[in-house]
Amino acid sequence: MTIDNCKIINLPKISDPRGNLTAIEGDHHIPFEIKRVFYLYDVPTGADRGAHAHKKLHQFLICLSGSFDVSLDDGTQKKICHLNRPWQGLHIPPMIWAAEINFDPGSICLVLASAHFDEEDYYRDYSVFMQALGQV
């Protein structure tokens, strides 16, 4: 996988004078079946989250409130994606090192995942991740 496989996806936005609604269906709006949902909130100013890669897991990050950046690294290229719209999300496929950074106060990050939690699926050490990619 490369950074080019990381895509911002626009979700359906149903506008109404009473407020907007966005629904998400796995394997329809996003490219995987949703097996796990979690969210990050009350992230202290200056703190980062993530800073790991997954061996097999796909993730889809949505900024429900506020804004934050996602730092992406495929071992060769790096890029930053800014998330600040609740009808857009970032698909992160396996083998991409990702970190959520630059949280505005009050930001909420919703994460949809393709599998249940499995510690064995994580690369938490960047040098081990680079070895797995054959970059070291």
Rank of each mutant, 00 (worst) to 15 (best):
residue 5 N to C: 12
residue 28 H to C: 07
residue 128 V to A: 11
residue 97 W to I: 00
residue 30 I to M: 03
residue 103 F to D: 09
residue 25 E to R: 15
residue 116 H to E: 14
residue 17 P to F: 07
residue 91 H to W: 15
residue 36 R to W: 05
residue 1 M to W: 03
residue 104 D to R: 01
residue 131 Q to V: 01
residue 37 V to E: 06
residue 97 W to S: 02
residue 87 W to C: 09
residue 130 M to I: 01
residue 21 L to V: 15
residue 55 K to R: 15
residue 107 S to P: 08
residue 18 R to Q: 03
residue 40 L to N: 14
residue 63 C to L: 02
residue 25 E to W: 06
residue 40 L to V: 03
residue 123 Y to S: 00
residue 60 F to V: 01
residue 24 I to E: 02
residue 108 I to S: 05
residue 124 R to V: 03
residue 32 F to N: 11
residue 39 Y to P: 03
residue 37 V to S: 05
residue 76 T to A: 06
residue 17 P to S: 06
residue 128 V to I: 14
residue 51 A to W: 11
residue 129 F to P: 00
residue 24 I to T: 04
residue 25 E to Y: 07
residue 30 I to L: 12
residue 114 S to T: 01
residue 25 E to H: 06
residue 108 I to F: 04
residue 135 Q to S: 02
residue 82 H to F: 06
residue 91 H to G: 07
residue 93 P to E: 11
residue 56 K to N: 15
residue 130 M to H: 00
residue 105 P to R: 07
residue 59 Q to R: 14
residue 54 H to Y: 07
residue 66 G to A: 06
residue 79 K to H: 02
residue 22 T to C: 09
residue 55 K to M: 05
residue 24 I to G: 09
residue 111 V to A: 08
residue 4 D to T: 08
residue 119 E to A: 13
residue 33 E to C: 08
residue 79 K to R: 15
residue 89 G to S: 07
residue 104 D to Q: 15
residue 127 S to Y: 04
residue 84 N to Y: 02
residue 40 L to H: 09
residue 65 S to A: 12
residue 110 L to N: 01
residue 51 A to Q: 12
residue 24 I to C: 11
residue 51 A to I: 00
residue 68 F to C: 13
residue 77 Q to F: 02
residue 15 S to N: 10
residue 72 L to W: 04
residue 27 D to S: 14
residue 102 N to M: 10
residue 80 I to R: 15
residue 25 E to F: 05
residue 96 I to R: 09
residue 102 N to I: 11
residue 115 A to S: 15
residue 46 G to P: 01
residue 23 A to K: 09
residue 49 R to A: 10
residue 62 I to A: 06
residue 44 P to Y: 03
residue 66 G to Y: 04
residue 76 T to C: 08
residue 60 F to M: 13
residue 75 G to P: 10
residue 21 L to N: 00
residue 85 R to M: 09
residue 56 K to A: 13
residue 54 H to I: 00
residue 26 G to D: 11
residue 38 F to A: 07
residue 107 S to V: 00
residue 115 A to P: 02
residue 12 P to L: 02
residue 102 N to D: 12
residue 12 P to Y: 05
residue 6 C to D: 14
residue 82 H to S: 09
residue 15 S to H: 04
residue 88 Q to D: 08
residue 110 L to Y: 01
residue 42 D to Y: 12
residue 115 A to E: 15
residue 36 R to Q: 12
residue 4 D to A: 14
residue 16 D to Y: 07
residue 130 M to K: 15
residue 130 M to E: 15
residue 17 P to G: 03
residue 127 S to W: 03
residue 64 L to V: 09
residue 111 V to D: 06
residue 61 L to A: 12
residue 23 A to F: 05
residue 40 L to F: 10
residue 62 I to K: 04
residue 20 N to A: 08
residue 8 I to H: 04
residue 131 Q to A: 12
residue 96 I to K: 09
residue 122 Y to H: 08
residue 40 L to S: 10
residue 12 P to W: 05
residue 123 Y to W: 08
residue 129 F to Y: 15
residue 83 L to D: 07
residue 78 K to M: 10
residue 95 M to Y: 05
residue 115 A to L: 02
residue 66 G to I: 07
residue 129 F to G: 00
residue 3 I to Q: 10
residue 116 H to I: 02
residue 122 Y to R: 11
residue 136 V to C: 03
residue 85 R to A: 07
residue 75 G to Y: 09
residue 4 D to N: 14
residue 116 H to Y: 01
